[in-house]
Design a protein around this nucleic acid. Structure first.
Lengths: 148, 148
DNA sequence: ATAAATAATTGTAATGATTACAATTATATT
DNA sequence: AATATAATTGTAATCATTACAATTATTTAT
């Protein structure tokens, strides 16, 4: 498993934290570890439910705080696809998302957003680019065809 | 002012409603009128506050219901940029959004999303494509430079 | 046109995610 | 070791959205 930006490991991210002068508390490390090991664009609740098994005293507020800190320094990205569920992504590299309406899974795909430009935005400072699609993933499409 | 898809007028949209067999109630027409006349990607609350002046008995629930109906038949699009504010767009044509972090305004820009494809999503059924940028708009950049 | 059926609208209460804040605990600095 | 600073917690508050039952309006069938 590579220790690069496209697949950030725990070690890579903790180093980044040190660079940004963010204290490596146990709780923060737990959240980071989860994000690295489960690159499934989790919600706060998913993180909470999972970590709560190991660390019963971990609070949701801490997860919110940690994520906000990480987003601030650019180590984590916010994904807004559905209006009622904010998701978090340890992958900050340029890529798009596909959310399956059937199984709910979110897939990454490569796309060169950073180089996109248009005369309509000349004079604008673009700081964040997001592309997401919705639809039905291959697996669900196959299942639907099987059942009908 | 043109009565085409890129700039939908009230007349155009009511015709679309008839096509879809959606009853043209007064409340629905008010909401539609607002969306057509104020193409500023409003939140439910903005719609509510504005229409409430004229129609004091209009409820937020009705606005939600109306918007859901319109989204269902594809006359209105949902915009999820910020996690805490869902916005609605009467422009259903293929385009991107830019949200200014300073003034909060949302700008449209043309981009050919519909033709985008990638081998990673082969076998997927894409039903909805969204692209949004965040940053500082030209006007705010100029103001910042003026003040400092 | 009238009665019955269906759809639209409303208001209230519930839900659920997120935030505010004060109290406590842990870590770093002197 | 004492003090200052940062992290964490729990509770309560906020805010957008939804559920639902009651009411009103509109359509359809007679």
């Amino acid at each position: 498993m590579g220790c690069d930006v496209m697949n950030p490991t725990f070690g890579f991210v903790t180093n980044q934290l040190k660079k940004h002068n963010i204290r490596l508390s146990n709780r923060r490390l737990k959240v980071l570890e989860y994000l690295c090991n489960n690159q499934n664009h989790p919600t706060v609740d998913q993180i909470y439910v999972n970590l709560h098994k190991d660390v019963p005293t971990l609070s949701k507020t801490t997860i919110y705080n940690t994520l906000h800190t990480l987003v601030e320094v650019g180590l984590v990205r916010v994904i807004n696809i559905e209006d009622n569920e904010t998701r978090y992504d340890i992958l900050t590299e340029d890529h798009g998302h596909f959310k399956c309406d059937s199984c709910g899974k979110i897939f990454n795909f490569n796309v060169d957003l950073d180089s996109f430009t248009t005369y309509e935005l000349s004079g604008f400072r673009i700081m964040d680019r997001n592309l997401y699609f919705k639809g039905i993933c291959q697996r669900c499409l196959l299942n639907i065809n099987k059942n009908y």
